[in-house]
Simulated assay, not measured.
Amino acid sequence: MCKPSLIDAHIHLDLYEKEEREKILKELDLYSVESLITVSFHLQSSKQNLAFAKGDGRIKAAAGFHPEQELPSDSEVDELLAFIRKNHKDLVAIGEVGLPYYKMKEDPSLILAPYIEMLERFIIESNRLNKPIILHGVYEHAPIICDLLEKHSISKAHFHWFKGDSKTIERMIRNGYLVSVTPDVLYEKEIQQLVRAYPIQGLMVETDGPWRFEGVFQERMTHPGMMHRSIEKVAELKSMSEAAVYKQLVKNTTEFYDL
């Protein structure tokens, strides 16, 4: 029986090997995957993802600078923002942007202020262009990002693979921000708790591929088809029918990204 359709709200399509990417695109219909929101690491990544989107209508590109890397120069940020302005009609969002939580865990001497300044530039641009923003912000960095979003009156914010405290989760729910969960919802208690706490109208599913998962997904290439298992788990955690969850999550993603 054909599965109901779903949308991968966060994938790094350009980071897959060419053969893997071709396999995924060939199998989207087989797994009832309507669309892929492919996010970017930097300018070159943004250009590559936009090229994919122009070649396949199921691919929706976002342009941004992933924070878990060395800071770019001001001129590099200027160039990326110019690219976003020039191509904003062909982009569904600005992202992935945020703060370097894991990089700071590895190097506590890293100074956060320049990353906050860079993120604010992307937030200002998302406001100016009226584009959703896709955020990498977890634990103690999430309230900092919420402060910036509130400062600039941003409502269309998507925190992907979110992890954080209950107070921040409540704040995000009040502000109407969306969160997406990966296949680790099958085995991570923290993510399961997030799903229980968050209203179904604020949830999406993602893979964050090519990042790999554990449990039943151990040593398997991350494929958008895995999200069907995520939906099953979300339905169980929310005490809802799978059909209702599929319908609501596609609605959430379609409306948020104006697909």
Rank of each mutant, 00 (worst) to 15 (best):
Y101H: 15
A113L: 12
E232N: 11
G176Q: 06
G98Y: 09
D14H: 09
A235R: 14
E106G: 05
F256L: 05
L25S: 08
Y115C: 03
I144T: 14
S32A: 15
P72V: 07
K163D: 03
T222V: 04
I116F: 06
R220L: 10
P100K: 13
G57V: 06
I231R: 06
G176L: 05
G57E: 09
A51R: 08
F213I: 01
R174L: 12
K131L: 15
G57D: 07
E19R: 02
E242I: 14
V181L: 05
V77M: 03
E188P: 00
N49H: 09
Y187I: 04
K60M: 13
A9H: 06
E255I: 04
K60C: 14
H10K: 02
I111S: 07
W211P: 00
V181R: 05
F52W: 11
K60F: 14
S40C: 07
F159W: 09
A82I: 06
R212C: 01
L30C: 08
E120W: 10
M104R: 15
S40D: 07
E242P: 09
E20A: 13
M240Y: 15
K238H: 14
P72M: 00
K247N: 12
W161A: 06
N87F: 03
P4R: 05
A244L: 15
L129V: 11
G176E: 01
L110A: 02
Q44P: 15
G176N: 05
K105A: 02
I169N: 07
L28E: 10
L129A: 11
L71N: 06
N130R: 13
P72R: 07
G98H: 09
R174T: 11
V234D: 00
V39Y: 02
R229N: 08
E120F: 09
I200C: 04
S46V: 11
R212A: 00
R212W: 04
K23C: 04
N175E: 02
I231E: 00
Q192I: 02
S46I: 08
K3T: 11
K167V: 13
L149Y: 02
M204C: 15
L50S: 06
T38R: 01
S109D: 14
H66K: 03
F52Q: 03
F122N: 02
H223S: 07
D208W: 05
M240L: 15
L203H: 08
S109H: 13
S32W: 06
L148S: 04
D184W: 05
A244G: 10
D29T: 11
L110V: 13
K23F: 14
S153E: 04
R171M: 12
P224C: 13
K89L: 09
T168S: 13
G225Y: 05
S241N: 13
H42A: 04
K105G: 01
S180D: 06
T253K: 05
E22C: 03
Y115Q: 04
P100D: 00
A63F: 12
K105H: 10
Q248G: 07
L28K: 14
L36V: 10
L249S: 05
I84V: 14
P224T: 11
Y115D: 00
G202V: 00
R128Y: 12
L15T: 04
K3Y: 09
Q192C: 04
Q193H: 12
A62F: 12
E188A: 07
E125R: 08
K54E: 14
I144P: 12
